[in-house]
């Protein structure tokens, strides 16, 4: 088991945190009519994964970028932009159903590519570029939709969010597929090795002939694409292209990546770790919901978790360098 964790670059601690959290939430959650803890029902289990799927995919995008010592603050806004772009093409412009997919993915990837282009060509810090994009993408989403949700998507699209083939919600399948493919790319391809090396020491990457510009460009585009996929799932789940979709989701996504073991300063990152991080966030939210804790407090809890995770990591790194 330990060897498996090591091989997959998953931190033992984050898995332990997840298990402890599950036990706490199970004990504290209310009891159903038939005497079972609500938290432990199969239905609730799917609720957690369903809720985690959207920001889980965003967190995968965040993992790619942060592993390379970058940051993407625009994830949540790009999700919103992707959501309304797909819906507007199909509902407002009455194009065939699959344009919702094409539109969402292209809008996400395009926003990511713009981030990457300005970061690499203009040498503007990623923090500033993606913070700017946070505003631009959200504004654009509101303009496209005139500030209102775009309702009424075709059956084919709703299938992606609401259907349950084999009893499992479709978004869960999508998340699994995206996570496995991303794990393959980050942990087992030269592209992944170059991503971690770039985040570890840019000079090292340059000296070994890695094309740094192309690498960064692709990483930000991947991040945007993930926001596009998440936007599509969001649209399908609520049957709406929603311009306010994904508000504050960058907080959830970055937190999930960091508590999953991705180094905020680059050089280390694992998709499987991020998935555990996303589950921790999902369990936390779900458990607090079941205990009827107000949403305002939940927002605070998530912010606190992010700060605590980075703080603990700093203490650990300092301890290591003192050895």
């Amino acid at each position: 088991m330990l060897k498996l964790l090591e091989r997959t670059h998953v931190r033992g601690e984050s898995l332990a945190v997840l298990l402890v959290l599950i036990v706490i939430m199970a004990v504290l959650s209310p009891v159903t009519g038939s005497g079972v803890r609500v938290f432990l029902t199969a239905n609730n289990f799917f609720n957690i994964i369903l809720a985690s799927a959207t920001f889980g995919i965003l967190a995968i995008g965040a993992t790619f970028v942060i592993s390379a010592a970058g940051i993407d603050l625009s994830l949540g806004s790009v999700l919103g932009l992707a959501s309304v772009t797909g819906a507007a093409l199909v509902v407002t412009l009455e194009m065939p159903w699959y344009f919702a997919i094409i539109g969402s993915l292209c809008a996400g990837a395009a926003a990511g590519a713009v981030n990457g282009f300005i970061v690499t060509r203009g040498r503007v810090p990623a923090f500033i570029v993606t913070l700017g994009m946070l505003g631009i993408a959200r504004g654009l989403a509101l303009i496209i939709s005139s500030g209102r949700g775009i309702y009424g998507l075709p059956e084919e699209i709703l299938f992606l969010g609401q259907a349950r083939p084999f009893g499992v919600p479709t978004p869960v399948f999508i998340l699994l597929f995206v996570a496995l493919a991303s794990h393959y790319v980050l942990a087992h391809t030269p592209f992944g090795h170059h991503t971690l090396a770039l985040g570890d020491n840019e000079n090292s990457a340059r000296a070994t002939g890695i094309n740094i510009r192309r690498q960064r460009m692709m990483l930000y585009t991947i991040s945007g694409l993930m926001a596009g996929i998440a936007g599509l799932i969001f649209t399908a789940r609520v049957n709406t292209g929603d311009p306010t979709a994904g508000l504050n989701y960058e907080l959830l996504a970055i937190t999930a990546a960091i508590i999953g073991g991705t180094n905020l300063f680059g050089g280390r990152g694992s998709i499987l770790g991020t998935m555990i991080g996303a589950l921790i966030m999902g369990v936390l939210q779900n458990g607090l919901n079941l205990m009827a804790v107000q949403a305002y407090y939940q927002q605070m809890a998530i912010g606190a978790v992010l700060i605590a995770a980075v703080w603990l990591d700093q203490i650990r790194t300092r301890g290591r360098s003192l050895q």
Partner: peptide, 20 residues
Amino acid sequence: LALAPQQDVANNIFLGREPT
């Protein structure tokens, strides 16, 4: 030296030329 400190020795030696 331009080494990547968090990557292991073997990966550093093959950085940029990974056999697949």
